[in-house]
Lab assay of single mutants.
Amino acid sequence: SQVHIGNTTFTFDNPEKAQKYAEKYAKKKGLTVQKNGDVWTVE
C-alpha cells in the first residue's frame, strides 16, 4: 500500500496504516485523500 503526498511516496505493509496516515496528514494540512486501489493520494 502506498501514500502519495506531492512528489513523495510512502510505502506501508498494511493498507489500514496507509489509510490512517493519509487521512491524518490530510486533516492536518486541510487537504483531501483520493483512493485508487491500494494507493492513497493526498492533494
Rank of each mutant, 00 (worst) to 15 (best):
E43H: 12
K29P: 05
Q2G: 05
K27Q: 10
T41S: 06
E43V: 15
W40Y: 12
D38A: 08
I5Y: 04
N36Y: 10
K35V: 07
D38H: 08
K35S: 06
F12Q: 03
K28F: 08
G30E: 03
A26S: 03
N14G: 06
S1P: 14
Q2R: 11
V39N: 11
G6S: 07
K29L: 13
G30S: 02
G37T: 02
Q34E: 07
E43Y: 14
Q2E: 12
T41K: 06
K27A: 11
T11F: 15
W40V: 01
K28C: 13
E23H: 06
A22D: 01
N7L: 07
Y21E: 03
N7R: 10
K17N: 11
F12P: 01
V3R: 00
T32D: 04
V39A: 09
T32H: 08
V3T: 01
V3H: 01
Q2Y: 15
H4T: 11
K24I: 11
K27S: 09
E23N: 05
T41H: 10
I5W: 03
K29E: 08
E23K: 07
S1E: 02
H4S: 08
V42Q: 00
L31T: 04
N36R: 12
E23D: 06
T41N: 07
K27I: 05
K24M: 12
L31F: 12
K20V: 11
T9V: 15
F12T: 04
V39E: 10
G37Y: 04
K28P: 03
K17H: 13
L31N: 03
V3M: 03
N14K: 08
D38T: 11
L31Q: 03
T41E: 10
G30C: 03
N14W: 06
D13I: 09
G37Q: 05
E43G: 14
W40D: 01
N7T: 10
K27G: 07
A22Q: 00
D13Y: 08
K35N: 06
V3P: 02
Q34D: 03
F10G: 01
K17M: 13
K27N: 10
T8Y: 15
T32W: 02
A26I: 02
G37N: 07
Q2N: 08
V42Y: 04
D38M: 08
T9G: 02
S1I: 14
T8M: 15
Q34K: 14
H4W: 07
Q34W: 10
D13H: 07
Q19K: 13
E23P: 04
T8V: 14
V33R: 03
P15R: 04
A18W: 03
A26N: 03
S1V: 14
T11V: 14
E23S: 04
G37C: 01
N7Y: 13
A22V: 08
D13Q: 11
H4D: 05
G6L: 08
W40G: 01
G30L: 00
T32Y: 04
A26F: 04
H4V: 15
L31S: 02
P15W: 09
T9K: 12
V39R: 04
W40F: 10
K28I: 10
Q19A: 12
Y25A: 07
N7G: 12
K35Q: 09
A22W: 05
P15D: 09
D38E: 10
T8K: 15
Q34I: 14
K35H: 09
W40C: 09
F10P: 02
T32A: 07
Q19S: 06
F10D: 00
K24R: 13
G6N: 09
E16P: 00
A22I: 09
E16W: 11
G30R: 02
V33H: 01
T11R: 09
N14Y: 06
K24V: 09
N36Q: 13
Y21I: 05
Y25H: 06
P15L: 07
N14I: 08
K17S: 14
F10Y: 13
K28A: 09
V39S: 13
N36I: 15
G30Y: 02
K17V: 12
L31E: 01
G30F: 03
G37D: 06
K20E: 14
T32F: 05
T8W: 15
K17F: 09
G30P: 02
Y21W: 15
Y21G: 01
H4P: 03
A26M: 02
E43W: 10
K17D: 15
N36H: 11
G6Y: 11
Y21P: 01
T8E: 11
I5E: 00
N36E: 09
T32R: 09
Q19C: 13
G6Q: 07
A18R: 00
K28H: 08
K29I: 06
L31I: 05
Y25E: 08
V33D: 01
V42M: 05
Y21A: 06
G6T: 05
T41V: 13
A18K: 00
I5L: 05
G6D: 06
K35T: 04
G6M: 08
N14Q: 07
T41W: 11
T9E: 04
E16V: 11
A18G: 03
K28W: 11
V39P: 01
Q19V: 04
Y21R: 05
E16G: 08
T11P: 04
V39Y: 07
Y25W: 10
E43M: 14
K24Y: 14
E16H: 09
A26W: 02
L31P: 03
T8A: 12
V33P: 04
F12H: 03
P15G: 04
T11H: 14
F10K: 07
L31R: 00
P15Y: 07
A22M: 04
E16D: 10
K24C: 15
I5Q: 02
A26Y: 03
Y25L: 13
Q34L: 12
G6A: 07
A22K: 02
E43A: 13
F12W: 05
S1A: 14
A18S: 00
V3I: 04
T41M: 11
N14A: 09
D38G: 08
Q19M: 10
E23W: 06
Q19D: 04
Q19N: 05
V42G: 00
T9Q: 07
G37S: 02
I5T: 03
K20W: 13
V42F: 08
Q19G: 03
I5S: 03
G37V: 04
W40A: 01
